[in-house]
Computed example of a mutant assay.
Amino acid sequence: MHLARYQQAAIKTLRPPADGHDPVLVPLLGLIGEVGSVATAYKKRIRDGAGIGHGKQQLREELGDVLWYIAALAHCLDLDLEDIAAASLEKIKDRWRVTPVADRTAFDAEYPDHEQLPLRTTVTFTPTEDDKGRTVVVLTREDGSRAGDPLTSASHIEDDYRFHDAFHLAHAAVLGWSPVSRFLLGCKRRSRPGVDEAEDGGRAIAIEEGISALVFSYAARHGYFEEVRSVDHELLTTIEHMTAHLEVSVMRAADWEEAIMVGYHVWHQLRENNGGAVELDLEKRTLTYRKE
């Protein structure tokens, strides 16, 4: 049965509200009650054993009641059940299905080679002492040239944020997007001033750095993702809002979660080995660590 037909049939049995009562109230409270009934039925299934025949039948009936109240509530709120279902599937796909490599957007495919993120490259992280006696991390490209400025953790407490460019390189590898990596690797899209300013310029760089700092703060409260393999939906939604006007907005929340996990996996290795080399492969969408 199609959801639209079910909803049309269901609302024929919806009783009109009493005078002066909110028509939404009865379906809403009914839905809450029936969800509780599903929990109770499942509790009995656990207690009595899954083999008890009536247990499955009771769950079927209770879930049917839940569906009826959802259909009635949607009708009272002037919502279409099929539209709700379709939107729900899209939301779930965005959150839990990583975009296949073959379907991922190459944001710089139409630009000259020197303005494209390199398909493969290696960046080396080397801790060293500067003239102020601070331990800084120096990034170098394959040709031996510096990539950006030497970094400290910029914190009263040493937390190895100085290796955080691994996060930006993970964004480049997994998402195909990273204004910071474009700056570090010298491949900003200067041939199109508007794109260079809006997508690769200071504001975009600040947004990506803000995402890096925001996720790091979250990671610090979750063991830096050593055992946790997922990110709260609210954090991913915040990232989505921060990047809504940028080209990376076409990527899914699941893609961002993958980029975060890849970045932290490499960051842990840099931290444990006090530096090393990181290999970026855009074709495979991977970022791998290599000890020097």
Rank of each mutant, 00 (worst) to 15 (best):
P118I: 02
D22G: 02
Q8T: 07
E142I: 00
G276M: 07
R203F: 14
D130S: 06
E34A: 03
R162W: 01
D232R: 11
A106Y: 11
A154H: 08
A74Q: 05
V123H: 01
N273E: 11
D130W: 00
K132N: 14
C187W: 02
F125C: 09
E247P: 05
H54M: 07
E62A: 01
D200Y: 04
V123P: 01
A10H: 03
R60W: 05
A109K: 15
P193C: 09
A213T: 14
A173F: 03
R104A: 11
I46H: 07
L77E: 11
Y111W: 10
L67Y: 03
R192P: 00
E208A: 04
A86I: 12
L81C: 07
V250P: 04
Q7T: 06
T99F: 12
R97D: 15
E226K: 13
E199Q: 15
V228R: 09
R146G: 03
A74C: 09
A206W: 06
D165F: 05
A244V: 07
G223I: 11
G201K: 07
A244D: 13
S249D: 09
A71V: 00
R5W: 05
A198Y: 08
S181D: 00
H114E: 14
H241E: 15
S37I: 08
V195K: 09
K91C: 14
L79T: 01
E257L: 00
D113I: 11
E279D: 14
T40I: 08
G223H: 08
S178N: 05
K56W: 13
M1G: 10
E129S: 04
P17D: 04
F225K: 01
I239F: 09
D113V: 13
R146W: 01
Y218G: 09
A71T: 01
E115H: 12
R182Y: 08
E234V: 11
G194F: 06
D83I: 12
E279L: 13
Y42R: 09
A172T: 10
G30C: 01
I52R: 13
C187P: 05
D200G: 05
H164G: 02
A4C: 07
V250T: 13
D103S: 13
G202S: 10
H164A: 04
H245K: 10
D108P: 12
T286V: 11
V24Q: 03
E62N: 07
V215N: 04
F107H: 11
T135E: 15
V278S: 03
T124W: 05
L25P: 01
L31H: 04
L119Y: 00
M251Q: 12
V35I: 13
V98I: 15
L59C: 09
E283T: 14
Y42D: 07
A50L: 10
G263C: 06
A204N: 08
L117D: 02
Y161F: 13
L184E: 10
A85I: 05
E62G: 04
K43R: 12
T124P: 00
P150H: 06
A170N: 01
A198E: 10
H21Y: 02
G51E: 14
H75I: 01
V195M: 06
W96S: 14
R203S: 13
H164R: 07
K56R: 14
H265R: 15
D281R: 06
D80C: 05
L117W: 08
L28R: 05
L280R: 08
R221S: 08
L81F: 02
F183Y: 12
G36N: 03
C76Q: 15
A220G: 06
